[in-house]
């Protein structure tokens, strides 16, 4: 999710060879004052069944995110607030804000292949991984850096990641997340890159579970705006109860 809400894209000239660190800086880098607002649709496919949700969200920096569900009817009005390592959920039908903890964080958001934990990875890849550029292939007609990232310590959830970063937009258009043993666990693909307010933004993301067959989550951004005026107190629990 960091990728989603925290990308800040800088047009960089490629006159000289670039280091992984620099790539990651650009990938990671986030204008701390950057604010954004977006509408998105999430579709979860599991065991042959499909379910779609639409949400509206505000984001600030890498640490703060406030999201509200718009549909389906049943989930409408549900709000989630992420601040650094903490997650709260507001459930309108029971008029309650509840802090989510424990193993629940490792479960998928709304049953998707994206866990709350994936959402909460608020530190950057730079601090968690060391990497090396292995090649510069073409992917879907674009030139990318293929980078192999290895976790710096044993507490990182995904010990190895392979990412393919688009050299033009600095978007990690494809990621493969690996287990400690080297088994492929998930893939994240970002496509439909559109220019928004001068920046390149991937409007579609597909996360796929590679261990359990038939399990997939798709996220489509219907509208993204940057530099928005955020409502008051949006990243507080009070906003949840509004």
């Amino acid at each position: 999710m960091t990728q989603l809400f925290t990308l800040f894209f800088v047009f960089v000239s490629h006159a000289f060879a670039i280091t992984v660190d620099e790539v990651l800086i650009h990938v990671d880098q986030n204008l701390t004052y950057e604010t954004r607002e977006s509408n998105l649709t999430m579709t979860v496919v599991k065991a042959g069944r499909t379910k779609s949700y639409t949400m509206h969200s505000y984001g600030r920096g890498q640490d703060e995110m406030a999201m509200e569900y718009l549909s389906p009817e049943r989930d409408k009005g549900t709000k989630m607030l992420k601040k650094k390592d903490e997650l709260w959920m507001w459930m309108p039908d029971i008029e309650k804000t509840q802090k989510i903890s424990g193993h629940m964080l490792r479960q998928g958001l709304m049953g998707s292949d994206m866990s709350y934990e994936d959402l909460m990875e608020s530190s950057s890849w730079r601090t968690k991984y060391t990497g090396v550029i292995t090649s510069e292939p073409m992917l879907d007609g674009h030139k990318v850096w293929a980078i192999e990232l290895k976790a710096k310590d044993s507490t990182v959830a995904y010990p190895k990641r392979l990412i393919w970063v688009d050299q033009t937009s600095f978007i990690p258009v494809k990621q493969e997340l690996y287990a400690l043993s080297g088994m492929l666990l998930k893939t994240w693909v970002m496509t439909d890159i559109k220019p928004i307010e001068g920046k390149q933004f991937p409007t579609k993301m597909i996360v796929e579970d590679k261990v359990q067959q038939g399990s997939r989550t798709e996220i489509t951004f219907d509208k993204v705006t940057f530099k928005v005026a955020l409502p008051e107190e949006v990243f507080t629990t009070r906003w949840l109860e509004r």
């Binding site: 979860v44 599991k46 069944r49 049943r74 989930d75 008029e95 309650k96 998928g108 049953g111």
Partner: peptide, 16 residues
């Protein structure tokens, strides 16, 4: 007491 469960789709079902 708040109860949180998972529906067949994985979305949170809740009750207070």
């Amino acid at each position: 007491v708040v109860l949180l469960g998972q529906t067949q789709d994985g979305s949170p079902g809740r009750a207070r």
